[in-house]
Design a protein around this nucleic acid. Structure first.
Lengths: 246, 246
DNA sequence: TCAAAAGTGTTCTCTTTACACCCATGT
DNA sequence: ACATGGGTGTAAAGAGAACACTTTTGA
């Protein structure tokens, strides 16, 4: 597991506070697109799932931490990443939820363990092309999976709220930023992008207008038409022009 | 100073870590409007100025902390408050900047004082009606003042960046949210609001269109016209309808 | 009655919308 | 040839911009 650089699990619970900023965590809603649905990468601990997350090292910025966490989990080199929100309620303390699982790892549970304090989470979301990802489990979680954002499984803590807020923010960001191509392969077609936007916004969009609006931005570069894929006429492929990604 | 509830200054530096979340601070860009300019409330320590700020108590949410800090400093009851950004660079450590001032307060400076660690700041901005505010100095700062955002004085740390980012965010938020009336008295006129928007956006706005757009939102309630104020025709006054202060 | 400030209306333009039509290609 | 899916054009509706006109009131 080349991307994991956690210290061993017992040291983590005992001495994590020496390496990480206490009371602060970073969670990333990793959003992908498959089967004409938005998917979200989740990790399983016990019977419930949680977002990829981690802590912020004393010597890295919060953005670097989010990026590192994302890379550790997905293997992506230079992932898309956008700040989502701060989750900072005072009762945001999940000591009890940790309790039973710590014992599995042979760590004796203590109320005053750093991990049992109240935590403020800095949440980000990331748009990824699923085939480019290589998710791995970490030392704590037992499995990973891509879940339809409309059918999220039972989740730990307030991670369900965070995931749904990410979709909500994506829906409003889609008008300002040109970021949705991160959910597709580097080469994609307008029908693909059109379909994707319809899925994200959950409504029909006029094809003609959509294509005009996208091309009017000037950020798209048309590639030679793809030969013989499907039955009818085949679509042009596009890619985002260099230096214009954003 | 009824709104200040800091513990005494020495205890603050010695034992603050027992009451506050370590490594986390909250800074608020308090924006007002006077003399047809955007103003920003700053506090002076030594030769430089800084934003009103503080730390987050163990048992309050980050929003509550920002609101408390704002209330402590301005006396406002239920102030407008909007999240701005996280400032989380790893080198965000101002130990050296504190050094000379700690000694003034009779606190012996030590490298490992909690206040000397690297800090992540959760920045907010707040739009206020200046005449409603009653700014006070705190235990550390020696004076307060309203500064033109175009002519900020020398400031501590990265607070200048934070203040300017607040203006930038206000300029983009102005299209989505209806919040600028917080900068005016509860009863205001369209020419006032028009002027204010021109100042914020730093460009001319068509009077006719501006008025139509504002009234088209349906959030404005027209009050009886004010009698004899100035030379020509006198403007109607408006207020924001109840339950629509979004 | 004129000037100044506020408020409203009119016209023109540009964008958005909805839908129709044309193009390419495998069966 | 025609069914299928991709791509483009066009006319109607709506939103935005520019500017002119009317109203109110003090001098």
């Amino acid at each position: 597991m080349p991307y994991l650089c956690f210290m061993d699990i017992r040291s983590f619970f005992e001495y994590g506070h020496e390496e990480y900023l206490p009371h602060l965590s970073s969670d990333v809603v990793v959003i992908g697109y498959a089967e004409e649905k938005l998917k979200c990468l989740l990790l399983r601990i016990g019977a419930r799932w949680l977002l990829p997350g981690g802590f912020i090292k004393l010597d890295e910025s919060v953005e670097e931490a989010a990026s590192r966490i994302l890379t550790e989990r997905t293997g992506l080199n230079d992932p898309h990443l956008k700040f989502l929100s701060v989750f900072g309620k005072s009762e945001r303390n999940f000591a009890e939820e940790w309790k039973e699982h710590l014992e599995k790892f042979g760590v004796s549970w203590k109320q005053d363990l750093w991990i049992n304090k109240r935590f403020v989470s800095l949440a980000y979301y990331s748009l990824v092309n699923i085939p480019d990802t290589h998710p791995v489990t970490g030392p704590l979680d037992e499995a990973f999976g891509w879940f339809d954002l409309d059918e999220l499984p039972p989740m730990w803590m307030d991670h369900r709220d965070i995931a749904l807020m990410a979709r909500h923010k994506l829906r409003s960001d889609i008008r300002k930023d040109l970021v949705t191509h991160h959910l597709l392969p580097r080469h994609f077609t307008m029908p693909q992008l059109h379909q994707l936007h319809q899925v994200i916004l959950n409504k029909d969009l006029d094809r003609s207008r959509f294509q005009k609006q996208m091309l009017a931005t000037g950020f798209f570069e048309r590639l030679p038409k793809l030969q013989k894929e499907t039955r009818g006429r085949n679509p042009y492929q596009y890619r985002i022009k260099e230096n214009k990604d954003h």
